[in-house]
Amino acid sequence: MTHPDPRLSINQATLKRASLAEALQATVDAGVQAIGLWREPVQEVGLATAARMLADSGLRFSTHCRGGFFTLPEGPERRAALDDNRRAIDEAATLAAAGATGSQAVLVLVAGGIPDGSRDLAGARERVRDAIGELAPDAAAAGVTLAIEPLHPMYVSDRAVVSTLGQALDIAADFDPGVVGVTVDTFHVWWDPDVLAQIARAGRERRIATYQVCDWKTPLAADVLLSRHYPGEGVIDFAPLTRAVLDTGYDRDIEVEIFNEDVWSTEPLRAVQLAVRAFGALVSPQLHSR
């Protein structure tokens, strides 16, 4: 079995069917040193219990997923979404404090899609900027970085009106880079002809809060949300993307985050071991050739 790269983190989405306890144990048993958590499994056991479980595991905490979904116009639903994001900020801060040395207080943000009955894409995107403006003081006070994640354009209508790294950086530019950064996820940005230039820009602006890897393979699943694959199973060239991220000085954990029914049906330890192998073959060579 390949020895896990010390910078590999397993994003809990890869182990969707596992409980928090099972995900932590599988990650530890595979020898991986870090994990990114999702809000729902944390909330199932309660934040205090989740923080204690994370501390007992000895794992670093790489990110908390996810906040966002705030493209609605002003009204009670938008206020409720912003309040929920404030709770997510508190969760990220608590979990980062519980993780091992090197843990990062990063909350990944998925912007949200175009509200029902609307065709105003530009307006929805501006409401994302406005929402982050409201949340930035809370994040700063908690020591949390909000990491705007651009999603592939096929998700623009229902999940994320922020589709490119450039758009995410344009929104982040209004805020301190320690408070608002970006997520670079290979699945979502690999297609963009401007991606390497935008990664370099993100580095100059000190905006890369997390780097996530998985592969793109067609045909896509009937539910396109579940179309991610282990690195090496699809068409993404991880070498130039990873080198570009590293060239910015990025030195944090790198997450494998996979939404895929076949992966979710795999026994958790085996799924982590497969992620270790794929990461070692496609990403690690860039980390250790410098």
Rank of each mutant, 00 (worst) to 15 (best):
5 D>I: 01
6 P>D: 10
9 S>W: 01
9 S>L: 01
18 A>Y: 08
19 S>Q: 11
24 L>H: 09
25 Q>A: 12
30 A>R: 02
36 G>D: 09
36 G>M: 02
36 G>T: 01
40 E>R: 15
42 V>K: 10
45 V>W: 02
45 V>P: 06
51 A>C: 07
53 M>S: 08
54 L>R: 07
65 C>E: 07
66 R>E: 11
67 G>N: 05
69 F>Y: 08
78 R>S: 11
90 D>T: 15
92 A>R: 09
95 L>C: 04
97 A>L: 13
101 T>R: 12
103 S>R: 11
116 D>T: 13
122 A>E: 13
125 R>D: 09
129 R>E: 06
130 D>M: 02
131 A>I: 04
140 A>V: 03
141 A>S: 06
145 T>K: 06
147 A>D: 08
148 I>V: 04
154 M>V: 13
156 V>R: 14
161 V>Q: 13
162 V>G: 01
171 I>C: 10
178 G>S: 13
197 A>I: 11
199 I>Q: 06
201 R>T: 12
203 G>T: 13
206 R>E: 07
211 Y>P: 00
212 Q>V: 11
216 W>I: 03
216 W>N: 12
224 V>Q: 13
224 V>P: 09
227 S>P: 10
237 D>T: 04
248 T>D: 05
250 Y>H: 00
251 D>L: 00
253 D>P: 04
254 I>F: 15
270 R>G: 11
273 Q>L: 12
273 Q>D: 12
279 F>W: 05
280 G>W: 00
283 V>P: 02
284 S>N: 11
286 Q>A: 15
